[in-house]
Structures are given as structure tokens and as C-alpha cells.
Design a protein around this nucleic acid. Sequence first.
DNA 1: CTGTTAGCGCTTTCAC
DNA 2: GTGAAAGCGCTAACAG
Lengths: 339, 339
Amino acid sequence: MPTIKDVAREAGTSIATVSYVLNNKTHEVSEATRQQVLAAIERIGYRPNINARNLQASQTKLIGYAWHDLRHGQMNPVLDQFTYLLAQSAEAAGYHLLTFTHNDDNWETVYHELIKTRRVDGFVVSNTRRDDPRIHYLMDTRFPFVSFGQANPGWVFPYIDTDGAHGVAEAVHHLIGLGHRQIAMVGWPEGSLSGDARLNGYLDTMARAGLPVRDGYIQRGEQDEQTGRDALAAWLALPESDRPTAVVAVTDLIAIGVMSAAKEAGLVVGRDLAVVGHDDVPLVQHLEPALTTVRQPLAEISQAVVAMLQPIISGEQATPAPCLLAPRLIVRQSCGAGR
Amino acid sequence: MPTIKDVAREAGTSIATVSYVLNNKTHEVSEATRQQVLAAIERIGYRPNINARNLQASQTKLIGYAWHDLRHGQMNPVLDQFTYLLAQSAEAAGYHLLTFTHNDDNWETVYHELIKTRRVDGFVVSNTRRDDPRIHYLMDTRFPFVSFGQANPGWVFPYIDTDGAHGVAEAVHHLIGLGHRQIAMVGWPEGSLSGDARLNGYLDTMARAGLPVRDGYIQRGEQDEQTGRDALAAWLALPESDRPTAVVAVTDLIAIGVMSAAKEAGLVVGRDLAVVGHDDVPLVQHLEPALTTVRQPLAEISQAVVAMLQPIISGEQATPAPCLLAPRLIVRQSCGAGR
DNA sequence: CTGTTAGCGCTTTCAC
DNA sequence: GTGAAAGCGCTAACAG
């Protein structure tokens, strides 16, 4: 592999000069020598050794990103997509993603090792929760990081997040615009950051529109299809005039459960019952009817995360202001054409 | 951040001695000084700078892994899972995964850059196909890599793969053992490496068992639910006595299509029709009935891939012998209790 | 057994 | 405008 020395010899200059044409924007090099060096580089196919460069600059141009846990046979299309987009955004900014894994027991060691050996320049953490120990740890060590997702209201740290309340609000507005007045929601158990945000979006919008949230309109459950089925059963158990004509689900998977159960109960989704999901995960566009859903702006988020991380890494700014990005309602057929 | 110099000063030795206790297995250091150094390291919380180490060893301890393409709103739980396990296996071997992205146009530049700048020590490539240009390119450049998946029969390169034929053979055996004689298969369009392997497993086993593969028993289609639905429709169109009593699908998603359509046609899966899927993707254990399926040995594969890559990276072996790993049949309820 | 020293490949002062 | 040289933090001959 050719080094900078080879280029210098080939171009008949010193290695310093080669280095100058390679990167020193301010340092002037005569056009003649510049061309000479460029030609030499081209001729021998030289590319600077990143490792050497990084050692000298004491950086790595690597962003650490912990894999979300797949152990429980679950899946998380949103995070898969996010990770992919994050890799892209990082690359666009001259970084690469170093993905690593850890479990509940050893996570601190893993982060600690990555930091102390200077393996990465910073971290991106996702899948956050209240009292998230990783965020607490990173705030404590003052190592550069940005979070996709919030933690405790009082904690001051840089994050980007989807404006969950806004997204669901938009969904509810859409349903109201379609003529619905009896709108229900099925969410996650209390205590989830994004789950609560989405629920608040529902509650706020209903309140502002002067629509009642009747008893039983709010159902909760884990992240699976069954939760949607159970919710529908509960709604069906209400007096007929009280039953919701439209429902919004905290995720697509739960919306799928609602739809399946509705079909089995003889309802036609899109006509008898409007359903809105959340996340626009793969395949929901192929459901029958295609699912109207709230799509998180993952591409924008991943870009914002990287953009926010850069000044922190270069030490320009300790804690940039957090930022919520608005999701977008993707209207398909599951809410029909209105009442 | 403390460096080796700080440790040396703290321990009252030379930096060489510190380096010796840190890693030179053969070089003897007196127990007294060793303890001294260890204590100093502990005291100041020193960890060797990976970058400096790597520069000196001209290595990176990074394995490049290109993200599978998620652009088309599809998902690939198998590769998600594999990537996660690969990261784990890499870590166990002292490596980390550098994940990167590329598209059909720029892939060569991306690989070239990664290689020439010595960003990674080697690659793992997955999602391979016949005439795979990435494999061709990597064979050509002689840069260390191992593939999860095969390419052209004539190409000599290191790979690990699932023994697709074996897995489906096991599934068919299982069905035969349950008393089935009329077994059909729905696969991918001709030309897919793993699709063809799985189909061959079916054909071979049927032939050896002396069972006929009737007209229409082999259905094909893309990787979606509809393919399964179409297949079932085709089988239902056969004369009643010719209809398959059991079917194996090339993937779980297609099996799900078969099951849904079967239910809609009034069949009870597990009693009227046995269904076997492939891959054991998340959620299929929660189907009704739970899907019997062939699970690829992804953990073993990821370990084998890393194990195979190591000697190649260290230049010990250019092309280790490829290796097929047997999948495992996960028996659940979708084949019932036998006829 | 321990220390001195020469790099790994690059960037960047500091002279010329 | 160009080059010599001093590191970045570490490893590994080579002496002693």
C-alpha cells in the first residue's frame, strides 16, 4: 500500500507538501506543484491511511450505536429503519457507524471500554426510557452523545424526538374532519415516554374539539396484535350508541389487531370503523384496506441527530437545544371517505 | 486522557515495560514490576488508545458490513437478526462491526474507499445472488471477506450458508411422518440461490419417498403474502382428490398468506391442511395456529463467518473451505397431530 | 529483566 | 511556497 512518502517521492516533493494539497485549505501551494502531487496520487492510487490520520487528530470518525435488543424474538421496524438512515446520515457527514451490542448487565462496561479506548467519537442512543441509565451515564461522563428519544423531563441533554402528540393530534383532526365524533384510542401501558405523548395528543385534540372521551374509550396493552383485538372487544361491549366510530392505535401492529378483530366481528374497516395506525411500518400499505398511519420523520431525525452530534464532538457546544420533529399523516383507505 | 507515558511515570518504569505487561505474552517481566505497573494502570484509569495500537499494527479490528437495502419499504427480519448476531460474534472475537450503506450505483466506490483508506480489516457480505458483483469485486481485489450466502457454483470464495435443501427436506420428512402423501410447495421465482436450494430439498425428498409431485404442486411467486394466497387458490382449483394435504412455503411470510387464504376458504389449518414455513421470523409463534417452521442457525452462522474471516485477515489462509450449516425444524401447531 | 529507540502514516509548526 | 522535523500513542527490536 502506497503511503504519503511514496507520493512525495513520485511527485518529487516533500511529504509536507503532499499533506498540504491533501487537506490544508489555508496553506497555499503553487498550482504547478499541486498538479504534480495530484498526478502522483492518481498514478500510484494513493489514499491517506485513515488510522494514521485519526491518531494524529485523536479522533476516529466513528459513531457508536448500540443495537436495539432483538433477543425476545420481537422486531422493531422503526429502529431498523432508523439505524439504516443513521448510517447514511453519518456517512454523509464523514462518519461511520460502529454498531455494538450489550445486555442489561454489561452495558456500562461496554460503553466505558468504548470511551476509554477512544474507539468512537460519540454515541447515538435510541430506544430511550424514563430514568434511562445510559443517558444518565453519558451525561455523567460528559462524553459526546445525542439521543433519539427523550428521558426524564428534568434531565438536560441533547436529543431529537418525534413529536408524538402532534402526530396523533393530526390523526384525530383527520378523523374529525371526516365527520367522526366518537373517537377512541388504544395505547401502551402508562409510563412509556412516546406512548404517553401520543395519548396526550389524542386527549388534547379531543378536548379542544369539545368531544367527549367516554368511559372505555382509552384502552391499553402491550405491543402486540392481541392488544388491538382486546381493545376492539372492549369497545364492542359498550352500548351501541356509545361505540367509537373511529380509533387510533399507538402503533401499526396494534392497529392490525383492531382491524383483524373488527373484520371478524363483521365490521367493514373504512366504512363501519375508521382505523389509524402509527409508524407506517413495512407491509401496512398492503393491508386490506391499506392503513392510514402516522409516519415518523426518521430521515430528518437521523440527519438532525448527526448534525447535533458534530458540534458536541468538536467541543463547540455542550448541550444543543433538544428538538421535536413533526411526523406526517399518511392517508390511505382505512378511514374510508368520511361519514 | 492518560497515555502509556503517564503509566510509566506513575509506575516508575519505562513505557516499554508498561507495553510488555500490557500485551507481550512471551516477554518476561518480574512479578514485582508487573504489579507496580498494574497498580499504576488501575490508579490512573488507563486504557490503551486503540487507534495508536491499530496504526502500529496496521489493522483496525473493524469488520465492514453493508446494510441490506431497506429502501423499498420491505423488511428482512432474517438479516436484521443476522446483523445483530454478527455484531455479537465480532465483539467476542475482538472486532467491531462498521456498518455502511451503498446503492446499486456507488457500491464499488464505497468498497474501494473503505479498502484503500484501510478503514476495515475485512468484510462480511450477505444477501448474495448469482453473479453477485460485490463478491466478484472482492475476489478480484483479494481483500479479506467472507460471505453469508453463495454465488456462482464455479466461484471459489469463502462462504457460510444455511443448508436450505436440508431444512426443507426435514420439513417434508416431518410431514411424511405425520402421514401426508400429497405435499405441495410454494417457492420464489426460479433463479434465486436459496429459493432453488429449498425447492430441491423438497423435490429430492419427495422423489426418495416415492411420492408424486403432481401438476400444480409447485407454485412460485414473490416474497409477499399474496403469493401464498395465490398458491392456495391454485391448489384449491385442483380436483379434490389431488389437492395437497400439506404444503411447505419458502418463507414464513408466504406461509402466512397460505394460512390466511386457507382460513378464508373454510379450512382449518393444522387439521385440514398442514403448513410449514421457513425462517421462524418474529411473531409466527403467535399465529393461530402457531407456525411450524424451519429456523436458520443464524447464531452459528455468524460465529462461523467471523471464525472464517480471522485467518483470512491474518493472511494464514486465502480461501477456507465453504460450509453449509443445517437449519432446525421448529415444530409447532400448524401441522396438527398427524392424519 | 528493563530501557532506549526506531518507527506505524500522517499533520503541522517553524524555518528557510 | 516548500521542507525538516516534532510529535499523535503505541509496539517491538535491540542493547544492556
